[in-house]
Amino acid sequence: MNAIALGLDRTVLELKMYAREKESVFFSFLFPVLMLALFSVIFTDTMTAGGSPLSAAEYFLPGMVSAGILLTSFQTMAMSVTAERDDGTLKRLRSTPMPPVSYFLGKVGLVVVTALAQQVLLLAVARFAFGVDLPDTAAGWFTFIWVFVLGAFAGTVLGIAYSSLASARSVSAVVIGPMLLLQFISGVYFAFTDIPSWLQQVASVFPLKWIAQGMRSVFYPDVMASLEMAGAWEHGRTALVLAAWAIGGLVLCVLTFRWVKRGTT
């Protein structure tokens, strides 16, 4: 119970530190919201996909939701843990009486709060600013929840594991670069069917493609399932792939996490 209480205190501290990092707040929290608003204003014509007319906001919302999940989990964790390891924060925390689990609970709390807040903001902007109809069935919201939970958990553990590959000087390029690339090939900014087949295969290896596909099943009409690679939403496969990434990321965290940067003791 003491570890949990300290974890809650650590969550509050993490949120305060996160709010002070303007670059992190913009690129991980506000970026998907601003992109949705920008695309919705620029592309004013109705788009047709699979015979179904969609406004720009309706068309881009699943991609922005999906990108937001990984930005607030994977990108936030990779950048913050790397910085704290290199500036000695982790080494100092390791020498305090605070249980290590409390530190990680604080990081999880940061992701939960920021990711939920971002999703609420995204959906509110889509609904009230651009008139997007949100899911009206329990099944739709259930799919949204389990895709969100699996995606955020996988992103969190993978981000912590990925932090071992970078230094504070290189972390922005090492993290933001690959994330932007994945967004372009995973159906976030373009229709997935418009992407070359070999790039579709590459994207299918990574979780963002499956998060985006799961979110398209929530916000798009069912007829548009025919446009997916398998001609269906593939909820079962989506859950298996995201669960595999979550478990694999957790194992990598255990095996690779370091409290000090390379070359120090």
Results as ranks from 00 to 15, higher is better:
170 S>Y: 08
165 L>G: 12
136 D>V: 12
140 G>N: 00
134 L>D: 05
131 G>I: 07
136 D>A: 14
149 V>K: 08
165 L>V: 12
136 D>L: 09
161 A>D: 07
165 L>E: 10
129 A>D: 07
135 P>V: 04
130 F>I: 07
134 L>Q: 08
155 G>A: 11
154 A>G: 07
136 D>S: 14
134 L>Y: 04
158 L>S: 13
138 A>I: 12
163 S>W: 10
136 D>K: 13
138 A>G: 02
141 W>K: 00
156 T>L: 12
134 L>C: 06
142 F>I: 11
158 L>G: 11
151 G>W: 06
155 G>F: 06
134 L>K: 03
167 S>Y: 11
164 S>Q: 14
161 A>H: 01
147 V>W: 01
139 A>M: 07
169 R>S: 13
160 I>K: 10
147 V>R: 02
143 T>S: 08
137 T>C: 05
134 L>V: 03
165 L>Y: 12
164 S>N: 11
148 F>A: 07
163 S>F: 14
140 G>Y: 00
141 W>T: 03
149 V>S: 05
133 D>P: 13
154 A>W: 04
138 A>Y: 00
169 R>P: 09
156 T>E: 08
138 A>S: 09
150 L>G: 05
131 G>K: 03
129 A>R: 02
147 V>G: 02
156 T>Y: 10
152 A>P: 08
137 T>V: 06
157 V>R: 03
169 R>K: 14
160 I>C: 11
140 G>T: 02
146 W>R: 02
139 A>P: 04
154 A>C: 06
168 A>I: 13
142 F>R: 14
163 S>C: 15
162 Y>E: 13
143 T>Y: 00
166 A>D: 15
131 G>E: 04
139 A>Y: 02
133 D>Y: 06
156 T>A: 09
139 A>G: 07
148 F>V: 06
138 A>E: 09
153 F>C: 11
138 A>R: 05
134 L>M: 13
170 S>M: 12
